[in-house]
Simulated scan of single mutants.
Amino acid sequence: MRSFKNFQTGALIGACLFGLSAPIGPAQANTHVVNFRSAYDAGTIVISMSQRKLYYILSDGTAIQYPVAVAKPGKEWLGSAHIQGKYFHPDWTPPAVVKHDHPGLPNLIRGGSARNPMGVAAMTLDRDQIAIHGTSPTMRGSIGTRASYGCIRMLNEDVTDLYGRVSVGTHVVMQP
């Protein structure tokens, strides 16, 4: 698989499910604080594949919990990663595996387009073609399922909230 590249022009190459996006708006994030005891430091993102939840660890034994869509069977990954880049309305170039499954996709979908599967924001990881990104109102039903090609899909209001809390270098852990 190819790696994310071409950030100077804003193009985001990601192995994520095709969908639509909505503009950033004043929508309230779908989050709540939960008890979360962990060996990881505050500021770490922990994703539970089985729970379909992303946790942003706070310093007091709690975490902000977000519902997410995770990778479909055969596209999963486990272990540690770090946020490599942060992008609002990133361009998207479908990788070969997505293009194969969806041959009618264009070679590039510009950021902000209603057809861009990255939604309003993306945080790329230091793993091949993996990002934590938004989604579209028409794909909201995929949240809580195994739907992506490896990416972590969030509601646009949630990815916007998380985007404001993290920085490049943030530790990300995917658990079964």
Rank of each mutant, 00 (worst) to 15 (best):
Arg52Tyr: 02
Tyr55Ser: 07
Tyr55Arg: 02
Gly43Ala: 07
Lys75Ile: 00
Ser59Arg: 08
Ala29Thr: 08
Ser80Asn: 11
Asp41Val: 05
Glu76His: 12
Gly25Val: 08
Val46Gln: 04
Asn30Ala: 09
Phe18Ser: 13
Gly10Cys: 09
Tyr87Arg: 12
Lys72Cys: 01
Asn35Asp: 14
Pro23Ala: 12
Arg52Cys: 14
His89Gln: 13
Val70Ser: 09
Ile57Gln: 03
Gly19Arg: 02
Ala27Lys: 07
Val34Phe: 05
Ala63Leu: 10
Gln51Pro: 01
Ala22Lys: 12
Ala29Met: 08
Cys16Gly: 06
Pro67Ala: 13
Gly74Leu: 07
Leu78Ile: 11
Pro73Val: 10
Ile83Thr: 03
Ile83Arg: 00
Asn30Ser: 14
Gln65Asp: 11
Gly79Ile: 04
Gly19Pro: 00
Gly79Ala: 06
Thr31His: 01
Cys16Ile: 15
Met49Gly: 05
Asp60Thr: 11
Thr62His: 06
Val68Arg: 00
Leu17Trp: 02
Gln28His: 06
Cys16Thr: 15
Pro73Met: 10
Val68Glu: 04
Gly74Pro: 07
Val68Ser: 05
Phe18Cys: 01
Leu54Gln: 04
Pro67Cys: 03
Arg52Phe: 03
His89Leu: 13
Ile13Asp: 06
Gln28Thr: 15
Thr9Ala: 13
Pro73Lys: 11
Val70Cys: 09
Val33Asp: 09
Ala81Asp: 04
His82Phe: 08
Asp41Asn: 13
Gln8Phe: 04
Ala29His: 03
Ala63Met: 10
Lys5Glu: 14
Leu12Gly: 12
Tyr55Asp: 06
Gly25Leu: 06
Gly19Phe: 01
Gln28Trp: 05
Ser21His: 01
Ile83Gly: 01
His89Pro: 00
Ile24Cys: 12
Ser21Pro: 03
Tyr66Trp: 07
Lys53Asn: 12
Lys86Ser: 03
Ile47Trp: 02
Asn35Ala: 13
Leu12Thr: 11
Val68Cys: 10
His32Asn: 13
Ser80Met: 09
Ala39Asp: 14
Gln51Val: 02
Gly61Phe: 06
Val70Tyr: 08
Gly43Leu: 07
Val70Gln: 01
Gly79Cys: 06
Gln65Glu: 15
Val70Asp: 06
Lys53Gly: 03
Thr44Val: 10
Val34Thr: 14
Asn6Gln: 12
Lys5Arg: 14
His82Leu: 09
Leu17Gly: 05
Ala11Gly: 01
Val46Tyr: 05
His82Met: 07
Tyr66Glu: 11
Tyr40Ala: 08
Ala29Cys: 10
Glu76Met: 09
Ile47Ser: 02
Leu12Glu: 07
Tyr87Thr: 14
Ser59Ile: 00
Thr31Ala: 03
Gly10His: 06
Gly74Ser: 08
Lys5Cys: 11
Ala71Glu: 11
Ala15Leu: 11
Val70His: 00
Tyr55His: 09
Val34Leu: 07
Ala39Phe: 04
Tyr55Glu: 05
Tyr55Lys: 06
